[in-house]
Design a protein around this nucleic acid. Structure first.
Lengths: 274, 274
DNA sequence: TGAATAGTGTCTGTGAGACAATATTAT
DNA sequence: ATAATATTGTCTCACAGACACTATTCA
């Protein structure tokens, strides 16, 4: 092996082809909350937790659904790649974006070796004005979980995607599970895994941070906010407890929401305590 | 663009060279706790939180310290790569290992584009029998934090590594900071960032999981366990509160630890409630 | 008027913070 | 005896779960 006298000399001489290289992609879990309009004038709109998927029109996995994603440029920061794809899909900038997990199983892409870093993005659909590409669609998420499995149904009103994930405890001191795709017919790659990881991360973050406000409009009622918590966590919350928990994070405004055939609600906004 | 009739036909024809590829490495934060023997026969050994570093004997960053790491093989799962490196460094298998973060800044390696996924590993040094390579060394970690910066000193008894990380809040709803290396003279690559991310993750996990037991021998006293919490969290805990918190996670054994010039202590072991 | 939502009051139990007190060993 | 650690008792306060109650709107 040649002896180098300086870092500069070493770098000039460096042959980067001695290790076989691979491709990288980023995939983005864009989560939001959708309103389902009710026919009863008294009732509030029903909220759904939803994720944005894209229909593939090329091989591999042609005609299946997948997460918005794409290759990382050779001189592009991976987070910048995520932002690029996010703004391609939604025309939105300055969106909540958080790195989730890097999937590096060698056979996850049938074409070649591709490592993929997944990101979690949260948006308020109200700011979107339905500016999504024609091949993209919002799917409502329904997830059920028992000891061994997670059952997920995604529904865009037109098409239903179902998959099942197996959980095996693989580390006893934390409650970490290894996820395996047991059933899946309509989702490309290992994206079922990314989706359940993303849901799980978001549920946790709801409990100890203020992330939820990234999915809310500027003004909202506490009932709406509570419903968002409920659809993501998948359980009902008690009103007084919820209001106590949220009280320090929100600020009451002069505005009221009226017209619902029931007592009007005060509108609140996020209070940034910092 | 050619029209393919099946996925198989498409894959046979696929030319993977159309995207420029890159290299991937994994870096591992191997954390443990070290005992500093006291000269006063009455006193307990002082515990230190420590990390394993490796001295580089090649360019780039020749003679600087870095995290144990290496390139990911073209057909190797990234987690398997982490396990391979971990067992190279410690001769240990079945170690606690958790993916931390993927660093994908384009200029982080001066040689070429390298994306690196960092992993967190926890070991009990007692099982190690000092079986580490000659170019590796345990460094005690001292970290101080204020509003804008984190000051870290690493010390292996022989050499002292100091670096300073700047924190800028870049997302208001969670308390996520963007870290920047402000001062650093002895650590290679962006490893100061990986180290502070790892410390931060471990601190959080201590609070809501049982990870700590991965750094403990089978039998331990509650004072030892408390000290481990204290050195990692960087703060003193109140004895009664600590004992109440830990009570459900441990099991008292018949064994006692004697010989310390003070009241002997019961030995406990981890109780796996599952 | 009544269905539906908005918002508050309060009891209870759990658990953490704080401090005090007691117990046990080797030199 | 004494320094050092081990272990427990208990008071207080904050807060979450649970349930009951009151308030307000519009067809």
């Amino acid at each position: 092996m040649k002896e180098y006298k300086s870092e500069k000399e070493f770098l000039n001489d460096y042959d980067s082809s001695i290790f076989e290289k691979l491709s990288m992609t980023v995939d983005i879990l864009i989560f939001s909350v959708s309103d389902e309009i009710q026919n009863n004038y008294r009732k509030l709109n029903k909220k759904h937790f939803s994720v944005l998927l894209v229909k593939r029109n090329n091989y591999p996995f042609k005609d299946m659904w997948c997460l918005p994603g794409g290759f990382v440029g050779i001189h592009e920061d991976i987070e910048d790649a995520a932002k690029r794809i996010l703004s391609n899909e939604t025309n939105l900038h300055d969106i909540y974006l958080e790195q989730l997990y890097t999937f590096g199983e060698p056979k996850r892409d049938p074409r070649m070796r591709v490592v993929s870093t997944s990101y979690l993005a949260l948006i308020d659909k109200n700011t979107l004005n339905e500016q999504i590409p024609t091949n993209a669609s919002w799917f409502n998420i329904m997830a059920l979980e028992d000891k061994e499995s997670i059952y997920v149904t995604l529904d865009n009103g037109n098409e239903e995607i179902k998959f099942k994930i197996g959980k095996t405890l693989y580390e006893k001191t934390t409650d970490r599970y290894k996820f395996t795709v047991l059933e899946n017919n309509k989702l490309a790659f290992d994206h079922p895994l990314a989706i359940v990881s993303g849901i799980s991360r978001l549920k946790n973050k709801l409990e100890y941070t203020d992330v939820v406000f990234n999915m809310m409009p500027e003004y909202f009622t506490l009932s709406e906010l509570q419903q968002v918590y409920e659809v993501i966590l998948g359980k009902k919350l008690l009103d007084p407890a919820f209001r106590r928990m949220i009280a320090s994070k929100v600020e009451k405004t002069d505005k009221m929401q009226t017209g619902g055939g029931h007592r009007p609600s005060a509108l609140f906004k996020y209070k940034n305590n910092s």
